[in-house]
């Protein structure tokens, strides 16, 4: 039976398209998606994978068919046809990839914008502790993130790195200062305590302000599809809204020394009620610890943790003050208090 080549080509094209689409949509290659934007990244991946599988099958198919069909027969000393090129064909395979990569670029740009990638360090009116910010960022070459009077340095944003506010987003609901050091993550909550694990409430806009202490690290939560280097002397940022409660690994993704592989932690996404309970427990524990630390002679405290302990100590006093005088918090420098779940409960 002799099937015309055009029919065969058509069938092959349909088969490649179907296989690519099926694999692109059912690949299950990515882990669980736990934030509001992770699914967008997954869709982008699936689209790129579908195109890639199609192109791979096309090229690989042609190579394999060539190897079988155009194999030199024993004793055949002749040459193939003297074809030096085909201009329309060459224009076609220049134009199609060009259109494809431009399309992927535009699509990626759009996803990146939705994620908030185009707007890191835009705090949307939210103010963090001016002193802490100036102390963290003043050594980097672009100058401090906040000016001495507490206003945002307009020069800062163009050097800012990370993933920031999605277009139209308000100030974040929760802000956590993250410190990466060999070989641990320290999460410094503005409510006045530190944690070795990141706890965040579900469906809330979370912002991580990150800085490194010693060498480069990278904060990565695979289930959030988010990663950002943590750099000594330079602030970077991540912002996300977890949508699924659960526990996910935090992985250091930038080589930071022999124990790099052991530098892991986890992020626990709580229900609203769980998060408030956890927050209250931490604040209560920190109060006890804070008093203990306050009574410890300064020369006994461990040197690398000093700034953290000091910051903690300071915040705890503010916290106590706020709890004693709820009506006075509006006048305080620590305006993050207005996002504090503990305050909401009061």
């Amino acid at each position: 039976m002799d099937i015309p080549v055009t029919i065969l080509t058509l069938l092959a094209g349909i088969a490649i398209t179907l296989v690519s689409l099926w694999f692109g949509l059912n690949n299950n290659l990515l882990p669980f998606a736990a934030t509001s934007t992770a699914a967008d990244v997954d869709t982008l991946f699936n689209v790129m994978l579908t195109i890639s599988i199609g192109l791979f099958l096309l090229v690989q198919g042609l190579i394999v068919i060539s190897a079988i069909k155009f194999r030199r027969q024993p004793g055949d000393e002749s040459d193939g046809p003297p074809i030096h090129g085909n201009i329309p064909l060459e224009i076609l395979w220049t134009a199609i990839p060009a259109v494809l990569v431009m399309g992927i670029s535009v699509y990626s740009f759009q996803i990146y914008n939705q994620m908030g990638g185009l707007d890191p360090m835009n705090h949307g009116g939210h103010k963090m502790e001016p002193q802490a910010q100036v102390a963290m960022a003043s050594d980097s070459f672009e100058g401090p993130m906040l000016l001495a009077d507490g206003t945002v340095n307009p020069e800062y944003k163009k050097y800012a790195a990370g993933v920031g506010a999605a277009p139209g987003a308000d100030a974040p609901d929760v802000t956590v200062n993250v410190m990466g050091l060999q070989y641990a993550w320290i999460f410094n909550y503005p409510e006045g305590f530190v944690s070795g694990e990141l706890h965040v409430p579900v469906n809330k806009d979370v912002q991580l302000d990150m800085v490194g202490q010693d060498v480069l690290h990278a904060f990565w939560v695979p289930e959030f599809r988010l990663k950002q280097d943590v750099i000594p002397g330079k602030n970077t940022q991540l912002r996300f809204t977890p949508t699924e409660a659960g526990t996910y690994p935090i992985v250091c993704a930038e080589l930071c020394g022999p124990y790099h592989g052991a530098m892991r932690s986890q992020v626990i996404v709580h229900d609203e009620a769980d998060y408030d309970t956890w927050m209250q427990t931490q604040i209560a524990a920190a109060n006890v610890e804070g008093e203990a630390i306050a009574m410890t002679p300064p020369n006994l405290s461990s040197a690398p943790l000093d700034p953290i302990i000091q910051a903690m100590d300071m915040d705890i006093r503010a916290e106590e003050l706020a709890q004693l005088h709820p009506s006075a918090h509006g006048q305080m420098d620590h305006s993050h208090m207005q996002h504090d779940p503990a305050m909401v409960m009061n």
């Binding site: 790129m48 994978l49 890639s52 192109l55 791979f56 990626s108 990638g117 695979p222 990663k227």
Partner: peptide, 21 residues
């Protein structure tokens, strides 16, 4: 070809943020 196609994928910033390093 496989390396080239995965190269286009990692060129896309939102995806590379996940798979970088």
């Amino acid at each position: 070809v496989i390396g080239g196609l995965s190269g286009v994928m990692v060129a896309s910033v939102p995806f590379d943020i996940h798979v970088h390093d």
